[in-house]
Design a protein around this nucleic acid. Structure first.
Lengths: 190, 190
DNA sequence: CATGGTAGGTAGACTGATCTACCTACTACG
DNA sequence: CGTAGTAGGTAGATCAGTCTACCTACCATG
């Protein structure tokens, strides 16, 4: 049974779109470029996605799950609540260290949001993702008996987000390494 | 003397491009939309700018100067080093509270950078802007005899940048208000 | 087993709109 | 006259999306 059963074309499209959207932006990346890069017929794109916007939403979902995977992996290796807080930070570091076609350019979800109009479904998805990350931080901080889990989670979320943006502008993970130090300092002698 | 002496067309173009680029992104905003919105002939765009990319660079420069103006205004009202640190934060708040066509959408420079390829002149300009803000913070912190001006400036810069992004996603200045509280806490009982 | 339907793939032409950029021709003003 | 503005046409590429026509592979049924 070497059958593909359900759409290998869809996977190829998501892979190519993932690379191209991240490196060059969603608006600037055309349909033809994506199908060519995926080695797939244009019809296959519209067999699997209703429109380009639909593909961008799938792209956002894929980036969301990708981050969750990095986080889960780090979480499995953490044995204390403090380490679980830092697992979130390490997931960001792992993200920055993934290989990219034309270099690390910051958070793919935030970059995508910058191209989406206010109130659009995609932008809302990014907003929910960031809120989920903050909630994860708050959970681990509560477990660690932190004085103000919500407030500290927000502080850490801002710190991470800002460091990620700066790291993206500089094409390096250095800023995130510094953010991890600051975060560890905040968590351990709270 | 109703004379325009030097190019009111240029100003009209920068004003229209400012609104349209911020609200809808640079790539998605076409030349014709800009000239129509500016009430200006297409030729006037190419009289004043070499290309669309040249216009985007002018847009970035304008956003940079706009932020510096907000900051200078806040700085003039600050009488202590601690207040001067918070003047930087307040400039971000002022930015979020400016009127926008389709709502506040975060830092225009960072949004623009998300559309620019790694290593491009525009992206480098945004990077330099962020470094300048951090240097301003470091200067005021040193003046305030802070223990680690550089490190604290970086911490505050991350905090601000992250809060700005979250505020943009939510279309509200609330996150920045929280960031100001955190910053004040960090600065005053450092 | 044979056959025909279904699902999803391929290549690529095509439409109508829009993109950047340049151009002509005319106008207002110092 | 020269400069910078106006209106708008045009070239040539590219955009998203639809379509035809053909090609498998799987599956259910007579």
């Amino acid at each position: 049974m070497s059958t593909h059963t359900t759409a290998p074309a869809r996977e190829k499209l998501l892979e190519a779109a993932g690379r191209l959207f991240y490196a060059g932006g969603m608006t600037a990346t055309g349909i033809d470029t994506i199908t060519t890069e995926a080695g797939v017929a244009k019809k296959s794109l519209y067999n699997n996605f209703r429109s380009k916007e639909d593909l961008t939403l799938a792209y956002l979902e894929a980036r969301h799950r990708e981050w969750l995977d990095l986080y889960q992996h780090r979480l499995a290796q953490a044995s204390t609540p403090d380490q679980r807080v830092l697992a979130v930070v390490d997931a960001y570091l792992d993200h920055a260290r993934l290989p990219y076609d034309r270099g690390f350019r910051g958070c793919g979800l935030l970059n995508a949001a910058a191209e989406l109009p206010a109130g659009s479904p995609g932008r809302e998805a990014v907003r929910r993702h960031k809120e989920e990350v903050e909630a994860l931080l708050a959970g681990h901080l509560a477990e660690a008996q932190a004085a103000d889990p919500q407030g500290t989670a927000e502080h850490l979320a801002f710190l991470l987000e800002g460091a990620m943006s700066r790291a993206g502008l500089e094409g390096s993970d250095e800023r995130l390494v510094r953010a991890r130090q600051i975060a560890a300092h905040l968590v351990c002698r709270r």
